[in-house]
Design a protein around this nucleic acid. Sequence first.
DNA 1: TTGTAGGCGTTATCAC
DNA 2: GTGATAACGCCTACAA
Lengths: 379, 379
Amino acid sequence: MAKKPTVYDVAREADVSIATVSRALRTPDSVRPRTRAAISRAIEQLGYVPSGSAQSLAERRTNTIGLFLPNIDELEHMSNFELESRDEARMVIDPPESEQQRPDSLYFDEVLRGCELESWRQGLSLMVNIGFGRPQSDVSRLVGTMSGKVDGLIILARSAPKQVLEFLHQRMPLVMIANAPSEHEEEFDVVRVSNRKGMSALVTHLVEAHHVSRLAYMAGPDDSPDNHKRYEGFCEGMRKKGLNPGAAPIYRGQFSQQTAYAITQGLIEQHALPQALVCANDQMGLGALHALTEAQICVPDTVIVTGFDGIQETETSRPRLTTVRQPMIDLGRAAVSTLVRRLGTPDGPPLSTELPVSVLLRESCEGNLAARHPESAQQ
Amino acid sequence: MAKKPTVYDVAREADVSIATVSRALRTPDSVRPRTRAAISRAIEQLGYVPSGSAQSLAERRTNTIGLFLPNIDELEHMSNFELESRDEARMVIDPPESEQQRPDSLYFDEVLRGCELESWRQGLSLMVNIGFGRPQSDVSRLVGTMSGKVDGLIILARSAPKQVLEFLHQRMPLVMIANAPSEHEEEFDVVRVSNRKGMSALVTHLVEAHHVSRLAYMAGPDDSPDNHKRYEGFCEGMRKKGLNPGAAPIYRGQFSQQTAYAITQGLIEQHALPQALVCANDQMGLGALHALTEAQICVPDTVIVTGFDGIQETETSRPRLTTVRQPMIDLGRAAVSTLVRRLGTPDGPPLSTELPVSVLLRESCEGNLAARHPESAQQ
DNA sequence: TTGTAGGCGTTATCAC
DNA sequence: GTGATAACGCCTACAA
């Protein structure tokens, strides 16, 4: 790896001053074509690339934004890692998992892609950090590691403790991506998704198009704002159609397949199934689906099941799960847009954007779609 | 956002010189406790954070590494994005997809997490860039955007055209993450996974434990090195058990559920099913599974089906798909480790690491595992 | 133990 | 148009 050439090298090679080199790069029109050509040649020849650090220092900004993703449990219990080549494949008898795995991994991935896409379009670099399951003491290290290198931060809800957010917010612009409105609404710029409206639209559709009146809500954890908003939407949808949401039973599914599966089994045994089982997330929808399928109960003819989020598995389950898809990629893009806008006007009022969700009507509520759209019938 | 304080501000506040401030931060032991305390106080009070750019410039390194992920088609056809709040949920009748969606999205996600985890442990920042579906002209912009800001790069196979790799490689250390050995093996540092051994172990197991002799291979695209290596493993496994791999039929499944589904349907109609259908990836395994399940053909009693990769859906299919799991997180970690080592010894010979895979034996070949492991029977 | 001063590679403001 | 030259914020010999 040869030592990296600098402007000085280029200047010497092209027989001009460093100022001219810099100009040729940033404002090409302000330099005579002949000299410009000479400089280009020199750059090409030396393989010169400007030093980002020096540029950032001089420009007083890094043109880089930071993205915080939440940690996932899996990583916390990760052993130390040693570089070594082992030589065989391991054989593992792999019993059914009892634990829910990387539950919203896909979200992060899509948000990341959205952020990267938009960053790229804006000519910015993206620095990523997986938040804290890490000890609190690491906060300071984080600050040193990351916050000195970016112009602003995008933070997925729950990736960092509040105290850290506030510290960071003092130093630089900060955009939150929150599924549900947060208490920080007044404080930070926020991008979020309309959980309530999505669930409301879904429930309205169920009542309207499928004439169900006995609905049940399979809830997530009590402390989840998402769950709350979705329940609100559930109630709103029912009310809108003249039904009494108070009459609809609520089951506590903890956002996991397992609990939903167990609960649904219970309902089956007690012949207590509703006409539509509205789940607060996809995991639970899938769990319910499995229980019903195993019991040979027809979905959607006997019971309609719906989820929320739009994870990949809802596409591959049989029947495919009706769900409400969150526009994760757009969330990322919106966050970057917001941050860029904020960087332009550091002192404006908080920016808040709510993105619409898409209710995806599929077989778990509509019946055979392939038959209805023969041209797109696959599999 | 107040103007950011610098060492000078801290120095003045603590009534010392900037050199002492710097020392207090980097080599605390070399400064008297009293002064150190004063400096800490000043830092705290001013909310000082060192400028990453300035540090990098002075230290002559950024302590940042870059990660290139491959693009996914979805993003290429992405419309321009405008920040706006729309107010309703969209209702979409969502027919079965004909296109394979974000096929290996999960991999990238996990590799990313591995990279981030290890970067963090090493005190490095991670900058990510989603490679090129982008026009070739953007290469130059990429270089300006990213390569000036990092000490080295980690590149997932196929995220950038060869020409770009070579350009980048001239400027800085570069580690490839490749599933299969690549032609760059001699040139770059590489981290990869033992496709061949994994498949070989799987096939050996099938023959040994399940006494199958009529196997078939469902292949991926011809131009996929992964596919080749896996086929090699398939042959090796058969040979090892005294079977003639040449006798095993090969079907071209193109790595997609749809083609595998169609092919399997064909086999069913022609009563040409093998005893074990060994697929080159999970998507195809799942497609085959769907076709068989729909035809009421029992897996694994009548036909064994296996996949490769270990994507999430293999956990939720019924029966769950036996597969070979790639250690994606460790790939990421190994890549960072390798890069760090390389940064330490710029001129050593190419580093090459092969990580072992895990053969996950599940219901699609073993039958009822829950029955065999009652303690872990869930769902 | 602490301070002084030169350098890191750019950008940008002046003159020329 | 082009060329000196002073920032930019930090690190690190070298001196004291």
